[in-house]
């Protein structure tokens, strides 16, 4: 996308910056620990990075670091849950999901353990550490585990609320959090339910369905598109599984064209979930913004999001592509 196609009269979208969703997770754990003495928190030598260290500081007797041993941590959390505790286990998403996958499968999903897993530093926006630390497949992995709910909050308020919803939900759950600070999209009074998307605007030209950091880029794209007379709605699909089929069907019906945006490989993530729901309701043209069958590299988060096609101009481009196909149908 060249900058020449972006209109000069940039519509206003200047959100305030808040804290990272990983930091909101740490805050939420402390709040949860205060009201629920059954909460136990585990980490695998990344507590300062995942922000579970906030819980450790307040409730050291209910916090356990397992050392650098993610598989063990995942199974210990399952054991705690099977014995009636409410464990939250966190690490970098890539280590938690990829190294702990068989343990997540057998100990948590298959055993139906009421254990909660939170993977931080999701996506490529972790930046300079490079692909070994960048989780670009966690949605796909976790969606493939029967019974798991899969969450990807877009800002601190969404993250805090979803930690509470995860705790209330009976069954295994996964949430991705991110490294960079995020724009503030919601406020303390906004409510969130598992499996119920949040809609921004009721545009009928196109629906942009996004999760995580991509929600903010989608809102930016929405403003850019408005400047060109294209009326888009943005749907924050913070719950990737179970995906909000009703919101998707409504979007397909009312807009007739859908763009999905996610900081994840295009295989098996949000786009796949949405496409299946669209196919079941009212098939409409779709385009997909995501990482294209590759690992990324070391650079700043901003450079990576740009290079790998995840920023607002790429969403705008995808909208224009889908609108061309919509006009033919």
């Amino acid at each position: 996308m060249s900058s020449a196609t972006i209109p000069n009269t940039k519509p206003k979208y200047e959100p305030k910056m808040g804290v990272a969703t990983r930091e909101a997770y740490g805050q939420a754990l402390v709040e949860l620990g205060t009201i629920n003495p059954n909460v136990v928190v585990l980490d695998a030598d990344l507590a300062k990075s995942t922000f579970s260290a906030k819980f450790q500081k307040v409730y050291p007797e209910r916090f356990f670091t397992v050392g650098i041993a993610e598989a063990n941590m995942v199974s210990i959390a399952a054991g705690l849950a099977l014995a009636g505790k409410l464990p939250f286990a966190s690490s970098f998403a890539v280590f938690l999901c990829d190294k702990g996958y068989d343990q997540l499968r057998v100990g948590a999903a298959y055993s139906r353990a009421n254990a909660k897993y939170v993977g931080s530093h999701g996506g490529i926006s972790i930046g300079e550490d490079g692909p070994s630390q960048q989780s670009v497949e966690d949605y796909a992995l976790m969606c493939a585990l029967p019974g798991f709910i899969v969450l990807s909050p877009s800002d601190e308020f969404c993250a805090r609320a979803l930690v509470r919803r995860m705790a209330e939900h009976e069954g295994p759950a996964y949430m991705r959090t991110g490294r960079p600070k995020t724009a503030i999209i919601y406020g303390p009074d906004d409510t969130f339910e598992i499996g119920k998307a949040k809609q921004h605007g009721d545009g009928r030209d196109v629906a942009i369905i996004a999760c995580g950091l991509e929600v903010n880029y989608s809102l930016e794209a929405q403003a850019l598109l408005a400047g060109e007379g294209i009326d888009a709605r943005v749907i924050d699909m913070h719950t990737i599984k179970p995906v909000d089929e009703a919101a998707i069907a409504k979007a397909a019906e009312e807009c007739g064209a859908i763009v999905c945006a996610e900081e994840h490989l295009l295989d098996g993530g949000l786009g796949s979930q949405v496409a299946r729901a669209v196919g079941k309701s009212r098939p409409v043209p779709m385009e997909f913004v995501g990482i294209q069958n590759t690992y990324a590299e070391s650079a700043t988060p901003e450079q990576l999001m740009e290079k790998y096609g995840l920023t607002a101009p790429f969403i705008v481009k995808a909208v224009k592509a889908v609108l061309k196909r919509k006009s033919r149908t």
Binding site: A71, I76, G79, L80, L82, A83, K85, Q103
Partner: peptide, 19 residues
């Protein structure tokens, strides 16, 4: 606990013992 994929039982047992 559900088992069958070897090597996980002691870890699950650690979780139960902690509980």
């Amino acid at each position: 606990a559900n088992t069958g994929s070897l090597g996980q039982g002691i870890s699950i047992g650690c979780g139960m013992a902690l509980a």
